[in-house]
Design a protein around this nucleic acid. Structure first.
Length: 292
DNA sequence: CACTTGACCTGTCCGC
DNA sequence: TGCGGACAGGTCAAGT
């Protein structure tokens, strides 16, 4: 659920809300979600000021003025929600949308100056928070092997095609989900971009032409940019830094639209199947498996 | 090495 | 109504 557009939406919100705040207290329910030693927390987190909020792939990076960084992965059901005086005000237009926090999914609470708080919620407990020296962030295993950012200027169709061809004998969907090929695509945007490029997700990479991959590159960028513009996709859990849902799902062409008409063919219904071990949505008319 | 599957978790939904 | 099982899907470890 949190894929690149969702994490980027959280980042944009936290950049506005969190930078300049000082972290006063940190509490967490178990060490699983936040396994750092308490001495590190006391020394490099408590009293630290947030100076920047970055993103790499689906990972959030909250930089502190102690040269340490909070590294956060939301996985499937993670949320990072900020609550300040501006969030609570009586009569606030979004007051009714904002549930009371902490709730039973809250794993980590950061108490900030000016009466604000930051909550890390995670229903399924797959997500995690780590405190690392900023300079070591690029050296963690995930960062060393993760592929290029799909929306950066230096990511070109040529680079995309070269990298994805390394996965010649797997399905194109499995290759898109492989974070070492490119960063940030998950189940929603894999299905959406493959529909856009009219490629069936089960097609082996070796059976997809360069022209089709080039089209897929364009569709990936289009879908990711549109999703960021819409504040991401909320299927169930995802909310942004203010606790609000994203609206991309209202614009989705295939994802979670099984039984509904394909936007290209009003007489053909979207079907759901399983590809690369994931629920997969396709139009049986415009997406067919072709072998050369 | 390339590739696939299972584990990690909890809440929800579906069929009996 | 209650209950068991399938399902949701990001990443890593273990398996083929």
């Amino acid at each position: 659920m949190p894929e690149l557009p969702e994490v980027e939406t959280v980042r944009l919100g936290l950049e506005k809300l969190l930078v300049g705040h000082t972290i006063l207290v940190e509490t967490h329910d178990t060490d699983k979600g936040f396994p750092n030693s308490s001495s590190d927390v006391e020394q490099f987190l408590v009293g630290a000021e947030v100076i920047a909020v970055r993103r790499r792939a689906k990972v959030l990076l909250i930089d502190l003025n102690t040269s340490y960084t909070l590294v956060i992965h939301l996985k499937m059901t993670g949320q990072l929600v900020y609550r300040g005086k501006e969030s609570f005000g009586a009569g606030h237009p979004n007051e009714s949308l904002i549930g009371a926090l902490p709730d039973r999914s809250t794993r980590v609470t950061f108490e900030l100056d000016r009466g604000a708080k930051l909550f890390f919620n995670d229903q399924r407990k797959f997500g995690w928070v780590r405190l690392l020296p900023t300079i070591e962030v690029p050296n963690i295993d995930f960062m060393k092997k993760v592929g290029p950012e799909p929306l950066e200027d230096d990511f070109t169709p040529k680079i995309f095609i070269e990298r994805i061809r390394r996965r010649a004998n797997t399905s194109i969907k499995a290759a898109l989900l492989d974070q070492t090929v490119l960063a940030g695509i998950g189940n929603i945007y894999a299905d959406e971009s493959l529909w856009g490029a009219k490629i069936h997700p089960a097609t082996h990479v070796k059976d997809v032409s360069d022209a089709e991959l080039k089209k897929l590159f364009t569709e990936i960028q289009y879908v990711l940019r549109l999703a960021i513009e819409k504040g991401g996709s909320t299927d169930k859990n995802y909310v942004n830094a203010e606790g609000k849902k994203g609206s991309y799902i209202d614009f989705a062409r295939v994802f979670r639209r099984e039984g509904l008409p394909c936007p290209r063919h009003s007489d053909t219904l979207i079907v759901k199947s399983k590809v690369a071990g994931r629920g997969t949505h396709t139009c049986p008319r415009c997406q067919t498996i072709v072998k050369y």
